[in-house]
């Protein structure tokens, strides 16, 4: 078996597309914790984030042949992650199973104090604010796209992102 750990993302993708599913394991290992973190950021629930992470990786395998390599694989993956999570929340909200309220007991008790602080801060943000941050920094949406999806002006979208980042910076740094 070739030493896949030395392969670039695009080389791994070529191998997977040629039917070498062992290469998929290396791609998974390289990115799964980043995907899980991003899922958690949007839904703020560890079990849900784990389920979404699984679904996303199956989706990655099914749609990998559509990745054009014009941009970095990570950008493609994070946009897919963001869209999948936001669609999940939208479908739950639509059926009344998601109110946007997050239980305040979610942070792990053994987490360092700084981590609990961040969890509590994110829980205080509205779902809409977290969605805007996710679109901007996880999905790499442009302000024009955010403006169209959220039905707000481009300058309002910019201002909102800037305000939210300032808030995060003030509370948790760096």
């Amino acid at each position: 078996m070739p030493s896949y750990e030395l392969f670039t993302d695009n080389e791994l993708i070529d191998a997977i597309n040629q039917g070498n599913i062992n290469a998929f394991e290396f791609l998974y290992d390289r990115y799964t914790s980043k995907v899980l973190k991003r899922c958690y950021f949007i839904c703020l629930n560890l079990e849900t984030a784990r389920d979404l992470n699984q679904e996303i990786w199956v989706k990655v395998f099914l749609h990998l042949h559509t990745f054009k390599k014009e941009a970095a694989f990570s950008s493609w993956l994070y946009r897919l992650t963001t869209n999948h999570c936001l669609n999940y929340i939208k479908s739950k909200a639509h059926t009344g199973q998601w109110s946007g309220e997050i239980p305040l007991n979610e942070p792990r008790q053994k987490s360092p104090a700084a981590s609990i602080e961040v969890h509590l801060l994110l829980q205080k943000l509205s779902l809409e604010d977290r969605t805007i941050l996710a679109m901007k920094f996880l999905g790499e949406y442009s302000y024009e796209e955010i403006s169209a999806i959220c039905k707000i002006g481009v300058s309002a979208a910019k201002m909102r992102v800037s305000r939210l980042i300032t808030k995060l910076r003030e509370e948790v740094g760096p």
Partner: peptide, 15 residues
């Protein structure tokens, strides 16, 4: 960078 710092600070367990 601030956003990545926030993500890292979440201290999510590895899958």
């Amino acid at each position: 960078q601030t956003f990545e710092y926030v993500l890292d600070s979440l201290d999510i367990p590895e899958p």
